[in-house]
């Protein structure tokens, strides 16, 4: 569990993070999204004890990160966007070093190192010097380092930066399996598609302020209560679909292009069925008709204050 209680960071002339009150329950995958410079990295660096907050507290599983850092680090795995690794070490030595540095029981370290190397797919590089690894492999090694001590909380700051599509997909699968094992994950990104599918909650930060924080279902339901986005396609036969749609109560913002349309509909499921019936009644030969699933990006655009991405 991660708790931010009035967490705040100020520098001499600017406020990086305004007092932040967020609680992330165990097993949650929390996506911290926002434009560059929104305060995401500062928040994560405070959460893992790298930056001292100006005011407020961060608690990881009940332990204050800044009051008892060595104890708190037992439960924290941290990965930043751009980092280096020790080129003169071998892959297993690197992980062995961090396993000892996290004070894991000595008799379990060797097995855990092998296990993690397998999880990130670096088995063939087990005994290789790190300087011979590719950038993507080094990134995977970084991920292995972050999870070597089986942390209960993972703090990931733009972890997919510099990864190729295959490595991104592997990272995604790894995070999904960690989520299934009950690991709490706080992950920041400004590439929203990265967070699609495995975040259970999101927080939107802008100019150091958390403008929204909550579970994705709650946001979707909240949005659905006001309107939903519907996509329609039909066989082109000269009908004025746009006028037909606009005549139906609850339909708004109709955008048509060729034989496709997207529109907003505010109303019940029965009302939406009536829209389809009305189209058919006007002779529109409908090919497809359905609600568009909301992406994290849609949610961000709805909830943010339209800052530049």
């Amino acid at each position: 569990m991660i708790e931010f209680q009035g967490l705040q960071k100020e520098y001499a002339e600017l406020v990086a993070v305004q007092p932040l009150h967020v609680s992330i329950p165990e097993g949650e995958v929390y996506g911290l999204i926002g434009p560059n410079g929104a305060g995401k990295t500062t928040t994560i660096r405070m959460a893992c004890g790298l930056l001292t907050p100006t005011a407020g507290h961060v608690r990881i599983n009940g332990v204050d990160v800044h009051a008892d850092p060595e104890l708190a680090q037992r439960d924290i795995g941290y990965l930043s966007d751009f980092f280096s690794v020790y080129d003169d070490l071998k892959v297993w030595e690197y992980l062995d070093y961090f396993a000892h540095a996290y004070k894991m029981p000595g008799d379990r370290i060797a097995a855990r190192v092998d296990e993690v190397i397998g999880e990130v797919g670096l088995e063939v590089k087990h005994d290789s010097l790190i300087k011979g690894l590719s950038r993507g492999m080094k990134q995977r090694l970084g991920i292995a380092r972050a999870i070597i001590h089986k942390p209960k909380v993972l703090l990931l700051d733009e972890p997919a930066s510099g990864l190729d599509p295959k490595a991104r997909s592997d990272l995604r699968n790894l995070l999904l399996s960690l989520r299934d094992e009950g690991t709490t994950v706080l992950i920041s990104s400004h590439i929203l598609s990265e967070l699609e599918g495995f975040c259970t909650s999101i927080g939107i930060m802008e100019k150091g302020v958390m403008v929204y924080s909550g579970r994705i279902e709650a946001i979707s339901t909240q949005s659905a209560a006001s309107f939903r986005v519907v996509r329609l396609s039909w066989l082109a036969n000269g009908n004025d679909v746009k006028s037909t749609l606009e005549a139906v109560t609850g339909v708004s913002d109709v955008v048509t292009q060729a034989s496709e349309a997207v529109f907003r509909f505010a109303g019940s499921d029965e009302g939406l069925a009536d829209v389809l019936a009305s189209l058919l009644a006007h002779g529109v030969r409908v090919l497809s008709f359905g609600e568009v699933k909301q992406t994290v990006e849609d949610l961000y655009l709805k909830l943010s204050k339209n800052q530049v991405m």
Partner: peptide, 14 residues
């Protein structure tokens, strides 16, 4: 400079 020090600081080493 190498950005490796942050990882040392976030271990349990005192």
């Amino acid at each position: 400079t190498m950005k490796t020090f942050d990882f040392l600081r976030t271990t349990r080493l005192t």
